[in-house]
Design a protein around this nucleic acid. Structure first.
Lengths: 200, 200
DNA sequence: GAATGTTTCCATCAAATGATGGAAAACTAT
DNA sequence: ATAGTTTTCCATCATTTGATGGAAACATTC
C-alpha cells in the first residue's frame, strides 16, 4: 500500500506541484480513505520528500544504464545515444522532469520541508555522457554545462502538452523534433569546442 | 492601486506559483485589506491572468530592444549580445522566468483560468536573435530551437538560488558562468551548423 | 455644502485543506 | 478459534482560503 501511494503521489505532485496537490486528491486516486494515507506516510511534506528522493534515485539508476550503453564509443556517438536514452526515459516519466523543475524555483509557504539534501548527480550525468573520467572532479563550469544539458531535456519533457499545442504537432513528431533539437544544440558545443577531456 | 497590486502579485505568483500564493499574501504585501484586492482585481485567477499577460508584454518589449541593438551585426556577435541582454534582463525579473516555466507544466485544480491565449513570441525571439528575417515564417523545427534557447536562459534564472548553493558560487560568479555556459552551448549550434538562414 | 461616485475596511461566510481519534475490519501467529 | 497486531474507515476538528456585503472613508462634481 505504501508503494501504491508513493506511485500515485509521484504523478500528482508532478502535475500539480506541492501546493496544488491535496492529500484528498492522492487518497482518491489510490482509492483509499485519507486517514490511510496519513497512517502510511504521515504529513504531506514527508510524502513529498519521499517522492522527490524516489525520482532522484530513478534518475541516478537511469544514468548508470546510459553509461553502460555508451561506454567505449566515440564522443559524438556517446552524446547522441545519451540524449536519446534520457529523452525517451523522461518522456515516459514526465513527473521526474516536472518535480525537478519545481524544485529549482517553486517556494512553499511554510518552513520548507523541501530543503532536504538530495543526492548529488551532476557527476553521474557528466560521467554518463562520457564527459569526464572521474565523477568526483567536476568543476563548477562543467557542472553548469551539465545542468544546461539536463535542463534542456527536462524542459521539453515537462512542457510537452503546452508545446504540442503551440507548435501544432502530434506527439510522435514532437518527440522526434525534441531529439533533433537537443542534438542540434548539444553536440556541436561539446564536440566542436574540444571541451571534452580525453578519456583515460 | 491596481498597478501596485499587479506588481506585488507578479513577484509572489512568480515565487510560489498559483496555488502556493494566497490572496492574503498579496494583500498583506501591498498593505491593504483583502477585499480591496478583490475590489480592484476580482477573482484570483483573473489577477493571475493579468500577471501572465503582463510579463509576456515585458518580454516582447525587451525582445524588441534586443533586436534594435544587434541589428546589422555578424551572426555570432548577434547571438552573444542577445544572450547577454536577455540574461541580464531576466535576472532582474526572475518572476518572468518562473511564471513562464510554471506555465509550461503546472496544472491547476479547477477549470483552468490559465488556458488563455498568450501572444505568440517565438517569432519575436528568432527575429531578435537575428535568425530569421521574417517573423511570420517560422517553421516548427526552428521554433523548437528558439524554445530550447529561451528555456535554457529561463532555467538558469529561475534556478539561481538552488544552483548557487549546489555550485557553491556567489551571485556574480554565477551570472558570469551562466552567460559563458549559454554561449558555449548556443553559439556553436547556430554558427557552425550553418543553421541560420541568410539575412535578406 | 450636498449629492454622487469610488475606494477601503471590518466582519464574516462557505468551502477546502491538513490532519486526527477511536472503532471496526483485516491480517497474522499460535 | 483466539489473541494480538496492523490497517482501514468514519466522523470530525482546527485552520486556512477564496470571496463577499455593507458601512465608513475618501474623492469628485456641481
Amino acid at each position: 500500500m505504501k508503494g501504491r501511494i508513493l506511485e500515485v503521489a509521484r504523478r500528482i505532485f508532478g502535475q500539480y506541484g506541492f501546493h496544488g496537490t491535496t492529500t484528498r486528491m492522492i487518497a482518491q486516486e489510490v482509492g483509499i480513505d485519507i486517514s490511510t494515507l496519513y497512517y502510511h506516510w504521515g504529513e504531506k511534506g514527508d510524502l513529498y520528500e519521499a517522492v522527490v528522493l524516489d525520482i532522484y534515485e530513478d534518475l541516478r539508476e537511469q544514468l548508470v544504464e546510459v553509461e553502460k550503453r555508451i561506454h567505449g564509443l566515440a564522443l559524438e556517438k556517446r552524446m547522441e545515444i545519451a540524449v536519446e536514452m534520457m529523452t525517451d526515459y523522461l518522456f515516459e516519466r514526465p513527473e521526474i522532469s516536472n518535480l525537478t523543475l519545481f524544485r529549482y524555483f517553486a517556494k512553499t509557504r511554510h518552513a520548507s520541508p523541501l530543503d532536504f539534501r538530495v543526492p548529488e548527480i551532476m557527476g553521474n550525468i557528466a560521467h554518463s555522457m562520457g564527459l569526464v573520467s572521474d565523477k568526483k572532479q567536476l568543476q563548477p563550469d562543467a557542472k553548469m554545462k551539465m545542468l544546461a544539458v539536463m535542463n534542456a531535456i527536462h524542459n521539453f519533457v515537462s512542457g510537452q502538452n503546452f508545446f504540442l499545442t503551440m507548435l501544432d504537432m502530434d506527439e510522435k513528431e514532437y518527440v522526434k523534433g525534441v531529439k533533433e533539437t537537443l542534438k542540434f544544440l548539444i553536440i556541436p558545443a561539446f564536440v566542436h569546442n574540444g571541451a571534452a577531456p580525453k578519456r583515460a
